[in-house]
Design a protein around this nucleic acid. Sequence first.
DNA 1: ATGAAAGCGCTAACAA
DNA 2: TTGTTAGCGCTTTCAT
Lengths: 332, 332
Amino acid sequence: MKPTIYDIARLAKVSTATVSKVINNNGKISINTRQRVLKIIEELHYQPNVLASAMKGKLTYQIALLIPDMDNPIYAQYLKSIEASGQGFGFSIVLCSTDNDPEKEAKHITLMRQKQVDGFIIASRFKNTRMLEELLKDEVPVVLFAYEKPELLIDSVTVDDYQGGIIATEHLLALGHRRIGVIAEETFSSNERVRGYLTALQNAGIDPVESLIMYSGHKIDEAEATGGRLLDLAERPSAIFGCNDILAVGSMRAARIRGVAIPEELSVVGFDNTVWCKIIHPELTSVAMPVGDLGQKVMEVIVNKIERGQKINQRIRMFPEIKVRATTSNKQ
Amino acid sequence: MKPTIYDIARLAKVSTATVSKVINNNGKISINTRQRVLKIIEELHYQPNVLASAMKGKLTYQIALLIPDMDNPIYAQYLKSIEASGQGFGFSIVLCSTDNDPEKEAKHITLMRQKQVDGFIIASRFKNTRMLEELLKDEVPVVLFAYEKPELLIDSVTVDDYQGGIIATEHLLALGHRRIGVIAEETFSSNERVRGYLTALQNAGIDPVESLIMYSGHKIDEAEATGGRLLDLAERPSAIFGCNDILAVGSMRAARIRGVAIPEELSVVGFDNTVWCKIIHPELTSVAMPVGDLGQKVMEVIVNKIERGQKINQRIRMFPEIKVRATTSNKQ
DNA sequence: ATGAAAGCGCTAACAA
DNA sequence: TTGTTAGCGCTTTCAT
């Protein structure tokens, strides 16, 4: 059997209370007793049972991360970043793939609450608003990541998507492009990026053309099809802004199929700056978010809520920056 | 306060024992009592506390997944597949990124044991053999995934890497290639794939050329450099087998830089059949493992160990198959 | 069919 | 400085 605190107490000839104090470094313990207890702990390879301590109102040091799926490489990066900063704060991450399914979202949340996780990080999108409201009502620590829910008073840590849309579009405008297509998804972030695109056009005194704004599913094939529709327009855009790298890469494929040269005949900008940018040819210009900092920040926020019951509500938006690569050039 | 089993018992005018039996569907409970209890549970939105039940010797329904990192897209796929089948079995996955660091491996294992996870799935590589032996000694359920440790009596679920190496090489041989380079990593799987490569050459009556077998780090830049060394050989190979897609894609980049046309002047085969194969141009021929089936299998194995204490040791190897795409063609 | 009660391993208030 | 003890929420044995 695994040794318990009782075994340690017995062998060290002290009470379990003393052992507990030694383990948790609180209360006053004489140096002698402490050493003796520590020695026994060492000898028996004693490991405190986190469950039992959580039962007494302590934390489980587990945070559930709800994320749509791992097919989009940016989600893998989110996960990596959040898990890494979690380690720094002493929290483990329980992964919950939602597949954009509100049912699954609800099941995960229910299950994770039964497992007494200390909080929830919800990444990228979440359909089940009812569930979110319930968490809020029950004062469960929740923070949204790379996602906002303006209608709810709920903390979030995101990149400034609107700003990102502006940056991407201004980059293309500066290269002389006037007819700029955009491919978006039906998500909050995507819409913000489109809003940035419109602002940038307006600032440049260009009237937005509705037919240049297209919506696509999140699979690469759908992106390719949508990019194709943009390229098949009677008056073809000279540049495309994909609201994420998948959408941009899909457009690049559509261009290749049609023999449209990138960047000579078509400039393309993506968003997320995933590794795809560097493996595709030509390398993709993309708007980068500071994923590492975002992960760090979201853990800070949720840990403050968990450990200090911090109630301050905040929407943190960090700045994106554009990584210029080979898919964008002056309009010819 | 969240309702406990006592609240339910009180309101339903039964004992906690009865409530417990209703929740767990065991013992004999009259239909009336059951209904009454269920109704109260419903009304209070009662959620049993998994911690407390785990304290009484039940499971936590959590499995720790140790995985090197998320940068390799195949790991993200592993994770996705394992998490999905975990859901099917009612187990959650706690993610532990090891970064190939034996210290981190050890820290995670210690921590996860304190958190009383029911078992461990260790994916792809694991350096800390001492830790592994300790788990085995303590009879903690562990299964290796996409990784084997021949010197230890430990269960594993993998693809048949040796066979995969044969398949990849035979594909190239069938296309008329004789001088085939290979880029490997210093891992068990990679070595198996190289072994398959050697076997296939031998079967074809070709003497392996030592200088055509190169080892690379796991980053794309390192792969590109190594691919470059292969291409800069006085007598350049007409085909390269990359022991994973990163290595293959790195070679493709090296080829592009040197103006070596793929597949006309160089055929390339990868391994893992990640999404990279479909986004790179030309699309990469790659050996695919049945990731979904592997994930399913590994959960089956570990859940049998956890729930039925199954002791049967087994190494399960599933069959790979090649997905032929555009990077391979007849030697010209 | 139902309930009383012990106890899982730990923490913390209180006593000594 | 150290120990006693009550309980966290649940399961399970043994009575009834």
